[in-house]
Design a protein around this nucleic acid. Structure first.
Lengths: 208, 208
DNA sequence: TCATCCAGTTAACAACTGTTCTCCGTAATT
DNA sequence: AATTACGGAGAACAGTTGTTAACTGGATGA
């Protein structure tokens, strides 16, 4: 692999990325369904018609943004759920990783939270597809634990969805607290940690 | 109270309600941030300028929709969390009530799920305010349980938020399954029930 | 009964939208 | 070196948007 791109394709990808970045920025204060194609090209400094060289529509651009925002997240999910001695350690580590990811990719997190139930169907479906994949990966990791003996696949997937949804809620809360004080963010972390802890306790006593 | 409205004010409220209803309908396939004022008035069959007699902007209308969608929900929350002999009974009842509410008010549920993280700040804040009130009410009901002795107020509120978020997730899943088969909706109910059950188990063993 | 109020109308405004077609310059291919 | 492929520019299109102003007619209150 790793074939050096021609200077033509390289420039094209550069423009495409600029469009994605500009769109992500504009989506800070609106939803995808109100994002105009001209609005995006204006922000990039390119002619409106250039947009069509890269995307069929803003909905199409939205789907690409889903890939960018969630596609690179799979390895992180794996390592988060995986390596840990105690489950308490795993919880603390997971919350830290979520907080860090929100710090470094706030616009991505906002986009996913906003468009997960948003007004653009193809984007909603893309997000739900990725989240379903996440849940399956979490399920696979959970299955490796010794706490999971006797669990049915259905129940493991049920628990995995609970974890994934909880991660999204926590990420969204961290996002709201981004501009807030350090104490505010600490409070979010505390609540999220205790919620995960409670779920973990429920898991331990599920078999009774 | 209960003063009979003049025929003038009655007509005004009628038009206002028509605007709210039309908007809710239009929001089935888009987000509030892309909802146009003319779009709404056109759907009602009224002049665009009439809109200003009722709302300052579509964002203002959105806030009114939040009141309509969530304001009347408080008593239901109370009765859901309250009366129940066993906690298992309470869980089943809660899921049933959520399913029923989604059946009878799908547009309201969709609106809340969509705009909770949507692109219009005042609406987001209105929803979060109402949800915070919900969480406090749930907390108050939980405090009455004998399972709650020894719990701090903070932990009870943490649990209440977990329940409220879980209710919203469940409602959103029911909404997606609305057009689907009966088996699909039953599967959603099963998963939601087991998730609530797991949380409930975690609650029972929290003190250890 | 008469003056006032006010929800809704009509007309007009500049600004904006997505989309098409035609063109240009240059990288890629032969 | 000649030809093709193609990302982007430019101009124009009909249609839309939010907002203002002045107006109408029927309910309201003296």
């Amino acid at each position: 692999m790793s074939h050096t791109l021609g200077i033509r394709q390289a420039q094209k990808q550069k423009t495409r990325q600029s469009l994605l970045d500009a769109a992500l920025g504009l989506l800070e204060e609106q939803s995808l369904s109100s994002l105009g194609l001209r609005e995006v090209t204006r922000a990039v400094g390119v002619a409106p018609t250039a947009f069509y060289r890269h995307f069929r529509s803003t909905a199409d651009l939205g789907v690409a943004l889903v890939e960018e925002a969630l596609g690179s997240l799979h390895p992180m999910i794996r390592t988060t759920v995986a390596a840990a001695d105690t489950s308490e350690e795993r919880i603390v580590r997971a919350v830290e990783l979520i907080a860090h990811h929100v710090d470094t990719h706030p616009a991505h997190v906002r986009f996913i939270a906003r468009e997960r139930h948003g007004g653009v169907q193809p984007v909603r479906e893309a997000i739900q597809g990725q989240l379903a994949r996440f849940a399956e990966e979490v399920q696979a990791e959970l299955a490796k634990d010794r706490e999971s003996v006797g669990w049915s696949d259905d129940d493991l997937l049920m628990l995995a969805h609970l974890y994934v949804d909880q991660m999204l809620i926590t990420a969204s809360l961290f996002l709201e607290a981004l501009e807030g004080s350090a104490e505010e963010r600490e409070r979010v972390a505390q609540v999220a940690t205790r919620q995960l802890r409670l779920i973990s306790i429920g898991r331990d006593h599920w078999q009774d």
